[in-house]
Amino acid sequence: MATEKKRARHIAVISGKGGVGKSVITANLAAALSLFGRKILVVDADLGLANLDIILGIEPPHTIFDAIHRGLPVDEILFPTTKGFDLVPAGSSLPEGTLFTQGLASNVKALLASLEDRYDAIFFDVGAGIGDVVLFFASLAHEILLVVTPEPTSVMDAYATIKVLHHLHGRNEFLLVVNQANPDRSSQVGASIAGHLRNVISKYLESGDPIKIELVSSIPIDPMVPRAVKARRLLMETSPESPSAYLLNHLAGFLDTRIF
């Protein structure tokens, strides 16, 4: 076991629509897995509009662009958080109008390859939309965690994300997290959204291989979440007893047994 070379599992947290709680979920999962003893790296992959640093209440001196664009050594941009995991920050460093070129993409790949044997898992907190940066990180991921809320726009964007990833990258498996559901019946809401997505997918999307939508968590809307964000701390620190903190911890446990 000790001699076996570690190769990190890559997990992309993706949503299509913005503001569905992706970064909060990523940060709490990473912190929980770190508590389980896993070595976790989080890459803020929302290049240009990153906000993990805000959620974590940190101000990292360097960003991923200092590495992939200016050639700074990777160890200088790695930011060890107080929550037990390391962060590759993005800042708001991608200047408006910058194209995500092949050159930049291969630099990101090289950067990740150099880090792979240090960690058990690398999370990509991917931005909104289904642009080229989002597709790039999704294409590197072993697992795709798709975050959706009960809002019709979020369901629509999640479907669009599945469609694009299926058509362009042949992805057939998605781990669905329903977030911000009605607290009284969050598990029913989760099941209903997952079922609905499966129906539309089987009607319009599946041509060959089946597309698997696995509902892995239904998290209720929780007033403690914005409070934690405001305090720039993690939910599991400010309200570890809250239902959503419990469910995030549970989801971390699921991932732990699923991917390692």
């Binding site: 009960p150 809002e151 369901v155 629509m156 009605n182 607290p183 809401v189 959204i193 609905h196 809307i221």
Partner: peptide, 10 residues
């Protein structure tokens, strides 16, 4: 997609 029964949402 829009036909999703939304009674479950807040």
């Amino acid at each position: 997609l829009m036909a999703l029964p939304m009674e479950g949402s807040v």
